[in-house]
Design a protein around this nucleic acid. Sequence first.
DNA 1: CTCCTGAGTTGGTTTCACCAACCTAGCGTC
DNA 2: GACGCTAGGTTGGTGAAACCAACTCAGGAG
Lengths: 148, 148
Amino acid sequence: MAVREQTCSIARSLEVLGERWTFLVLREAVSGTTRFADFRATLGVASDVLSDRLATLVDAGVLEKRPYREPGSRARDGYHLTDAGRELAVVLGALQQWGDAHRPYAPGPTVLRRSADGRPLHVAFVDDEGTEVPLEEVRFVRTATYPR
Amino acid sequence: MAVREQTCSIARSLEVLGERWTFLVLREAVSGTTRFADFRATLGVASDVLSDRLATLVDAGVLEKRPYREPGSRARDGYHLTDAGRELAVVLGALQQWGDAHRPYAPGPTVLRRSADGRPLHVAFVDDEGTEVPLEEVRFVRTATYPR
DNA sequence: CTCCTGAGTTGGTTTCACCAACCTAGCGTC
DNA sequence: GACGCTAGGTTGGTGAAACCAACTCAGGAG
């Protein structure tokens, strides 16, 4: 990846999120995981890589370290989502719904998203009044200078 | 990344999309790029890597090769989005909006999404009636066995 | 003071991205 | 019909990054 500062906001997002394991770490974080050992156990990621990814995410303000103390144990740091991190739920939701639709898995969709009242949700483009806009009506428009 | 089949749909998406450059290739594809040389020129990616990524995306049914013929030139293959590929616009939109919000770039947001009528759009969770649902009301629920 | 456990760090191996150079149709040109 | 040009790759070598196993380090438990 080029080192120069990226004008494209997708590229800038990927500077933080684009490394191997990062989205999976965030998936775990969104579903409540906060401890190093729990990330490691559920993901099966090598500890040096996990250590690096957590540090990158903390640097970027996606996660924050927060000390906790298990009774009868010394103080340790847990990793908690910041507001910026919580907003990544939209990206994760979009990835999940695409995977459910286009990377089929014999046992069927394994994870669903539901609101607090239990109704099914999906991720979509929405106009400024909060109403879904179908994909065919969406255009990507470039408004400024573009990389390279 | 583990080789075994992933039960998580996010992980399954990332098997196809999670390599370096893939999202940037798709960003270009969504904005109309179809030719090898054009991907190369706008992204600055090495040709062997580009070749590999395009092949992966074709294999996964995200892109399809379609022959074209420039007048006075031989037939070549262009790379065009399939329906599955077009649906990735939601993921790209979500990444872009997060980058605009949380990875600031001095000149300000560089790319906006607008519908055909020019109104601004964003990406969000939506209920089954097509109405936006605020993030705080969204829960990720696991409905089946989970990796590891 | 020894053992255990969580949270990493360190060292060696394999994979992958990067770069430059090369290949290969087919077309236009002479 | 040989010659060069161009798009779309492939090949070979190098350095970084992921992977794995082993080790460290701090504090509490016994």
